[in-house]
Amino acid sequence: MTGFTGAELIAAMSSLGAGIAMVAMIGVGIGIGFNAGKTVESTARQPEAQGTLLKLMLIGVALTETAGIFALVIAIMLLFANPLMP
């Protein structure tokens, strides 16, 4: 067992944490896919409402994306602006 310093341990664990944080994107992908699929379905059923549906879809996608963006911000913080690093 070779020794390592506390800073090295924190760096290694932060990198792992950044990777684990991005797992949140699974949910975002499913959510956005569901959203887009339903929009396609609605457009096929009522093609004249396409403009409104597209606008609503973009808002929905933006709101769904928020969770993933928070995960991304946390991952970026862990990698580049780590508050735990001594």
């Binding site: 933006a62 994306e65 928020t66 963006i69 928070f70 991304l72 911000v73 970026i76």
Partner: peptide, 13 residues
């Protein structure tokens, strides 16, 4: 917070 983080996160990524 979400509004600021959304555009920041997307462009920064």
């Amino acid at each position: 917070i979400t509004l600021a983080c959304r555009i920041f996160g997307n462009i920064f990524a």
